[in-house]
């Protein structure tokens, strides 16, 4: 529990929008004839962090790191197994279904695949206006007015309202998803791999749009992605997740220039970069595959792939250590 204290002490002031404390999400694994629970898949295992108003916290991790599950727990789409989430100072992790609904206005999500996340039988107007229909008592003409406003804001044309999702390219569909997320004027948007299905030239358009909207509307983002370049571009702070845990969290510049956790170091040096001078960087290789989250290694979860693992790593779980202002790392090398 010490990691909670260290992380929250980093800020602890009024400008905190989201405060996640010791969140765990375990999925039961059923087996046998009686379908009894025979184990747990620890998708998110004791994660704590805060997000300030107006900032973007990037969450990076490979598949299976628990980053998407974390986003869904925060949005109340999944109930946490343990832990607390405060949004604007209000505890939201224990709310009943009915109590959650007003909250949905303030918290929205943009999903990865704009082909799967938009109902193909609804026109853009219906898709974008649907949240207004559910959440507000606006009249038809008011809804239309508001929808046009937001559709133009995300860079589509007002007469695109009458078209259907299949008439748009991937990048434009992602703009529709963003319009749908923003129509209620949320404070907080979780972006779950919003650009990873897009080509680079389109990805850049959508990333620029998201930055502009953040400046315009004062949005706070939790940006979940596996692409370290994309996360670096959009985030103010970055948390690196591995097997359900945060390995390292730091302001962007600090994390990319001075990564401390061997996993972060390995991750950064695994990315093929366009090195115009072609000078060979020293590569830190991460060997092997991600262990199963149903049966994570004892002690430090990264130790089975860590080039710097030592005896202590197998027995003791590393706690967060503060290495610089806002820079925390969970690794025995620094304790």
């Amino acid at each position: 529990m010490t990691n909670l204290q260290t992380i929250t002490s980093y800020s602890g002031s009024d400008d905190i929008l989201l405060d996640v404390q010791n969140i765990k999400k375990y999925f039961p694994i059923k087996g046998g004839v009686l379908k009894r629970t025979i184990g747990h898949l620890k998708a998110v295992d004791d994660v704590s962090f805060t997000v300030k108003k107006g900032e973007t916290l990037g969450i990076v991790g490979e598949s299976g790191s628990g980053k998407s599950t974390l986003g869904r727990v925060i949005l109340n789409l999944l109930d946490p197994t343990e832990g607390k989430i405060y949004f604007n100072g209000q505890e939201i992790s224990q709310l009943k279904r009915k109590q959650v609904r007003p909250l949905r206005k303030d918290m929205q999500i943009v999903f990865q695949d704009p082909f799967a996340s938009l109902n193909s039988k609804m026109s853009v107007a219906e898709l974008v206006e649907e949240p207004l229909l559910v959440q507000t008592s606006l009249s038809k003409s008011q809804r239309k007015e508001r929808a046009i406003e937001i559709i133009e804001k995300v860079g589509l044309r007002a007469d695109d309202r009458l078209k259907y999702p299949h008439e748009f390219s991937g990048g434009q569909r992602q703009r529709i998803s963003i319009a749908r997320a923003l129509i209620m004027n949320p404070q907080f948007v979780i972006c779950d791999e919003p650009v990873s299905a897009l080509d680079v030239s389109i990805q850049a358009q959508v990333l620029n749009l998201m930055k502009d909207l953040q400046d315009d509307l004062g949005l706070t983002y939790l940006f979940i992605a596996h692409d370290l370049g994309v996360v670096k571009h959009i985030s103010d702070r970055v948390a690196v997740m591995y097997l359900g845990k945060i390995a390292e969290i730091a302001p962007k510049k600090e994390l990319y220039e001075n990564p401390l956790h061997p996993y972060t170091q390995g991750l950064l040096s695994s990315i093929p970069v366009i090195d115009k001078s072609k000078k060979q960087r020293e590569k830190i290789k991460i060997t092997g595959d991600l262990p199963s989250p149903a049966n994570p290694p004892s002690g430090c979860v990264f130790r089975t792939r860590c080039p710097k693992a030592h005896d202590r790593c197998a027995v003791e779980q590393p706690l967060f250590t503060k290495k610089a202002d806002g820079h925390y790392v969970a690794c025995h090398l620094y304790t």
Binding site: V200, S201, A204, N208, K232, V273, I274
Partner: peptide
């Protein structure tokens, strides 16, 4: 050129990415 400019770079900071307008 457009492809290269639209890539988020790890080694340098840019405020806005270059884009290629429209789609293929």
């Amino acid at each position: 050129q457009g492809l290269l400019e639209s890539l988020p770079k790890l080694e340098e900071d840019v405020d806005r990415l270059g884009t290629i307008k429209g789609t293929v």
